[in-house]
Design a protein around this nucleic acid. Sequence first.
DNA 1: TTGTACGCGTTATCAG
DNA 2: CTGATAACGCGTACAA
Lengths: 351, 351
Amino acid sequence: MSPEHDLPNGAEQRQRVTSRDVAAAAGVHQSTVSRVLNGDQRISNNTRKRVEATAEQLGYVPSKRAQNLRTRRSGVVGVMVHDIDNAFYLSLLSDMHRELSAVGYSIVLIVDPLHRRSDISRMRHLFDDSLDGMLITTAMIDSEIPPALRARGMPLVLAVRSMPDLDVDTVESDNVAAGREAARHLVALGHTDIAVAMGPKETSTTRDRLRGVLDVIQTELPPDRVMHGPYRHETGYAMCRRLMMGERPPTAIIAGNDVMAIGVLDSAWRTGLSTPEDLSVLGFDDIPMAAWQAINLTTVRQDSKAIAEQAARRLVDRIDQPDSPPHHDIFPVSLTVRATTGPPRAKHPRN
Amino acid sequence: MSPEHDLPNGAEQRQRVTSRDVAAAAGVHQSTVSRVLNGDQRISNNTRKRVEATAEQLGYVPSKRAQNLRTRRSGVVGVMVHDIDNAFYLSLLSDMHRELSAVGYSIVLIVDPLHRRSDISRMRHLFDDSLDGMLITTAMIDSEIPPALRARGMPLVLAVRSMPDLDVDTVESDNVAAGREAARHLVALGHTDIAVAMGPKETSTTRDRLRGVLDVIQTELPPDRVMHGPYRHETGYAMCRRLMMGERPPTAIIAGNDVMAIGVLDSAWRTGLSTPEDLSVLGFDDIPMAAWQAINLTTVRQDSKAIAEQAARRLVDRIDQPDSPPHHDIFPVSLTVRATTGPPRAKHPRN
DNA sequence: TTGTACGCGTTATCAG
DNA sequence: CTGATAACGCGTACAA
């Protein structure tokens, strides 16, 4: 970026109005102006009115930069998300924003690329003092950033995904229960050959949902029935292709989340399979799109709004009370049955 | 939020390491530390090494807050978007983030609620000096914020939507051409009764696309064939319902954007209509979802990546050169024909 | 009720 | 090549 241009050139016309200017114009001291604007009670109504009037008239707005330095707070929290193309993370972001801006915080976006490891050196700016706290939705089991931030004393909340080895405020769904619900539903329908097309092994969501599924199935899944990959549409697409082109395609696929499940559906439909007759498909999250007529996906609902709001509240509390013991909030999930799951077709060789 | 707690209580343990601490430990003056970390050339290799070593060892990170005050720059730009549930705005945000963070800027999210007017008093924080610039994607023809920001000398770029009365950097698609492409396609297929289910009247996108459509149709559309509403899925859904339940349903609907078009499709399919036999549907943007098998929407593509990147570059330039003349970039669009448009069914009364 | 004085942690200018 | 010193614009204890 350009260095500071030396003094009175073009750009300098728009000098800011400072509290000193207001003070001079109102015939009081700068500190009085400061007091008035901070609602100090012991200011006479008279001067308060006068100061407020001249401030208004001069169009004075206090310098956030100076306030930040002085108060050692910035009123800004970072929210770490992945490359954003998942409706779940979007509404999460939006809900967090509503909750945080209501209490005076702004949000800066920290994008943790889904594909490549976010090394700590590229994230130096998280360690300057520009943020009052961080909300992290992209934690992996072995992420380096969260422990590093914690060691630095940065107020921190993990949302959606947890880290077993890190004792910080965490807000997530009961993903083991989610996995169980999913598997129970399919087993109850009569499926015996279920494949799982999950997200990355290193995430707590994947690990927990998978554990829930295995709890119910009660038997190890053969290796070709368990796949892992990024939480993306195209991952689901590719996994479904691989599974259904194989020797003995499964009768049901549990996808890592709705976006992947829709990728699975997209692939299935494109190759002429119909759901649920040829294949049952089930996701997690219940993003709005899952309810659309054209998709109509059976899924295990996760309450993203509750998670977002609770995580935001926990962060605000943590900033105010850095030393209180961490909380771990777990929200319930619920199965929503729609049109992509049904009994498997009676057994006979497909031609 | 909590006031500053008086001194040496709990939270104060984690005092920041300052350049003074480093200076003391390295046996130099604080200003030397500053010079080393800013890569000043006239520092002896000897002391440079020593200072860098002790800085590293003490875990020193320069205070952004102090830098901001001193340099009068924050390295933060605001990006104004609507309540985020449109994939188009999401990828826009993500692309802008990539481009801006590459040159050292952070992004703070400003959410302009889609439903209620964002009055200027609720947006006071845009006028403190915490932002180096603003990228606005939510401009309406009569928005108050952009002119107010401009009057204050805030570097400003309008992306996606323009404001005819405001002479600032603007980056948008050729929406008139987009409207023409849409109408030409349907007319060529033989449609003569086309309805438009557009976005808000007060947006340049709506206004321009509608103008393009009328250019081609060459006749005024009857009032019941033109509808306006927020750019949302449910708006498209409701409009389709109203249109198709009426006396003489149209044979084609041009929707304001893809999200609305998908709402239209959702409604049509839910009531048993099939596309394109009973109804042709066409959108704008070409969001990724439009290409999914389950949707397969004919749409006029808008190059959101190019717009995002160009807008980001323009803003960076504007911040560096506040007084250069504004640019107006217009990107071409292109029709993508998929499965939701076709010839109208031969005329006979529906039963 | 208000003015005085100082410091938040840097960057930048001026000496030496 | 490096040290001393002055801002940047505010909040706040202390004095009056």
